[in-house]
Every structure is written in C-alpha cells, then in structure tokens.
Amino acid sequence: MEGLRNDGRRWNELRRIHCQLSTSSTNADGSSYIEQGFTKVLCNVTGPAEPSSRQKVKQDSATVTCEVYFAAFSGTDRIKRGRNDKKVQELQTAIQKTFSSVILTHLFSRSEITISIHILSQDGGTLAACINAATLALIDAGIPLKDYVCACTAGQSTSIFDNEGSSPDPWLDVNYLEESDIPSLTVATVGDSEKIVALSMENKVRIERLEAMIAVGISGCAKVRGIMDSEVRRHGKEKLEAQGE
C-alpha cells in the first residue's frame, strides 16, 4: 500500500495509547499503567520518603531514584536482565535525570522519591513509554511537577527516496520492527513547550534528517500530552465525584 507503514499507520500516526492512574493499591503512593501499541509499562512511585541510604540524603532537595525491571517475557526473546545490565542502567539514568529536572525537588529536603518501573511488553519506544508512565505515576502520587513530561519516538526511513531529492517524511512512534530496521530517536518534552528534557538516539542518521525527526517527535509529544491530560482529568473527576457523595 502506498504511504502506509507495515502496521497500516500513516507516517504521522500514533499508536493507540491507553493509560490508567492509581492501578496499584498497595504501598506505592502513586501508580500508573500505560500501553502504547504493544509496549506495556507499569510504574509505581513512592515518596517523598525517608532516604533508603545515607548517600542519598541531600540537604536542600529530594533525591530521585529510578528502578527499571524488564520482565523476562517482555521481548521477542526470553532474556533475563539483571540489576547490572547495561540497558537497564541506561534507562534508569535517563529517567532519573529527566525527572530530577522536572520535579520540584527543593520542596522536599532530605527525602527520596523512588520511581519503580516494570516493563511488561516491549514493542518499540520503551524509553518513551517509561517516561510517560512515570509522569502519570508522579501526578497520581501528588508530587509537584513543573509540567507533564511526555515522550515520543520518531524514525527516519532510509530506504525510501523521493524523486525530487527531498527527504521523505519521518515516521512517528516507531514499533519494534521499525525500530530495529531504521534509525530512530526518543524525545521528551516538558508540557506544551518545545523544551526538550531528554533526547536519545542509538543509531546513525544523516544530519539533515535530524531536525525533521526531532520536530515530528516534539509534535507527537504534544499529542501524547493531550491524551495523558484527558486521562488525568477523567480520573480526577471520577475521584471528586466519589468524594462529593
């Protein structure tokens, strides 16, 4: 089919996003679940709480820690990823750095905010889904954020060339097949602004293509924000109605 990707989407079409707040009733202060296509992520947030170790005590702000767990069955091959796995650690650092800059940490001195993420299923855009899930869980926990942090992926097809020599459209929200096939990047923005808080790319791409990819990613983020915001409002309304009775 002309102009359609392998899963039938257009270049600028998002996969289905389904999100939920307050999914876990135990221990966690906030929790969320997000599905972006077949990427499924569960997130729990605890805190601000007493730091688990002395090293994590900061006198004037809260420490943000992130734990990422890959379910062994989450990918196409059954892989057990331990605590020291490179990919796990990379994700943890990326998420931790992103949120340290967005959470108003100065309000909670000498405390720790723990973001714990379980990846249940991977189908491309794992980092993006993790960031989105963490945002929702933090909102659910009532932790002050500057704004939503929304993440989205964008890829650049290398095989298709336009006759006129202009570069083809970048692909928004790549799935696993596309991700393993073409260069792609993950971009996270703060709210509606075009301020980027996280940008990660693991492949090589021609420099001329990069700008278009980032632009598409940013627009995707804005769309994701709208979807997440409507879920937060729906959840909030439901909760207020229950209390109003």
Partner: peptide
C-alpha cells in the same frame, strides 16, 4: 511548519 499528528484509532 505545523505538523499534523493523527490521533490513534479510537479504543473502546
């Protein structure tokens, strides 16, 4: 350059 993003197919 405004980019139009198509929202995901409805999920019910």
């Amino acid at each position: 350059m405004p980019i139009q993003i198509i929202s995901p197919a409805p999920f019910v």
